[in-house]
Design a protein around this nucleic acid. Structure first.
Lengths: 231, 231
DNA sequence: TGTACATCAGTGAACGCGCGTTCACTGATGTAC
DNA sequence: TGTACATCAGTGAACGCGCGTTCACTGATGTAC
């Protein structure tokens, strides 16, 4: 039988290296990540990582794949929590899952969208391509679902709606991580705890735009109860 | 009289260095920018830049300042083109100006929002702080203006609306520069020329959400003529 | 169960490299008289 | 206008550094008989 891929000497160096990388990115920023420093933090020699990753590049790509897998998980988890609700609520849940992931895993998130660190070449057939496609498919499914809803205005097509929704949550995540707060702009120094609430309302604003105000049925009414609370 | 700050030997090395940096960032990505390579491209010795920038950091900061100044210009230009229209149209124009800037100056844009390259320390009193505050003020003014409009729903406050609008345009810009297109996701491979149109519709979607469907007057009708064209 | 051998995750020294920055210098430009 | 001097943008060699990666090695673990 094929030997199990178990750790021999170290507990699980591969995992330890990935974790050390994340910690280093969080502390010093993406631009300061060095394989030697990662090895140092893992308590091994500078050559040790090469038994797990052929190059520094490969470690970064492994992190990016991990990120896309976690992103999909986060979106799915959010989605399942409202599985019994309408398509618009489920759509909103995917967005909340997206932002939740970004805030919980800022290092992964930043890395995933930095093509100059994790090049795009030959993505299609790789694990990274598959992981990307997976999270992206969740978004597209939610879009399709939402567009089937009779009470939705159709002035954005499938691709348009996907891009707009994605822009909103992606932008919110970026700004929350590196934007106005990090920039120290005084007018926007909201307390961090208020953020999820704010994001939910934001997405709600976008989704309200998609409702046909005249044609909206009970689905709309369920939401307006929630909305009124925030006014 | 004080001597004019004119070039002595080189035409204008400071400017040349900044331009070379931008070109280098566009070609190789933010993470590959080196002062030596910039000097090489400008055709000067590695020590020459130090007569214009005390450190590499200072050059990056100069670029970031430049970026924020251009961002404000772009937003203002967009705004002035619709100066005679309603507050909602003007609001939308600031967003379009934002995205237009990002697509026209991707290197500046990326640099401006990378705190690990251009640290936030002591921003308040610096030129960078002033430039940031300037573009940010345009956004806030547009928000305040829009909130004064009687036909606007108030379920987002000033800060909430600013963050949502900013998220939308910022996210769109990021995704257009480094996102799904760069990631090669097949479902979103829109032709680049369609982008401004798409963005305009996206912002329109957000703004529609802010209108009270019942209370909307002529202002709303002006827009719906445009909207119908895109259905 | 015990021994011989293969495997392979780790070591530690070494490599060449490009980097940011410094330094003493040179030579063109601008200024004072 | 012409000359002496100060200024300062550029040169080119040199520095020390941390990096990614390679290499011959060691020694613990797993496998065959």
């Amino acid at each position: 039988m094929p030997p199990k891929k178990r750790a021999y000497h170290h507990g699980d160096l591969r995992r330890t290296l990935l974790d050390a990388s994340i910690a280093l990115i969080v502390e010093r920023g993406l631009d300061q990540l060095s394989l030697r420093e990662v090895a140092r933090r893992a308590g091994v020699s500078p050559a040790a990582p090469y038994h797990h990753f052929a190059t520094r590049q490969e470690l970064l790509e492994a992190l990016a794949v991990e990120g896309f897998v976690m992103l999909a998980e986060s979106m799915r988890a959010s989605l399942e929590a409202v599985a019994d609700q309408g398509s618009v609520e489920r759509f909103r849940a995917t967005g909340v899952g997206y932002i939740r992931f970004a805030l919980a895993h800022p290092a992964h998130f930043r890395l995933m969208f930095r093509p100059s660190l994790v090049p795009v070449s030959a993505v299609a057939s790789s694990a990274k391509g598959a992981a990307q496609a997976d999270s992206f498919q969740i978004l597209l499914d939610a879009v399709d679902d939402t567009l089937k809803d009779q009470s939705i205005r159709a002035h954005l097509d499938r691709r348009g709606l996907a891009l707009v929704a994605w822009s909103l949550v992606h932008g919110a995540a970026e700004l929350l991580l590196d934007g106005p707060f990090a920039l120290g702009l005084p007018e926007l120094d909201a307390p961090a705890p208020a953020i999820p609430e704010l994001v939910t309302r934001a997405f709600q604003g976008l989704l309200d735009a998609l409702r046909d105000a005249k044609g909206a049925g009970e689905g709309a009414r369920v939401k307006s109860a929630k909305r009124r609370r925030t006014t």
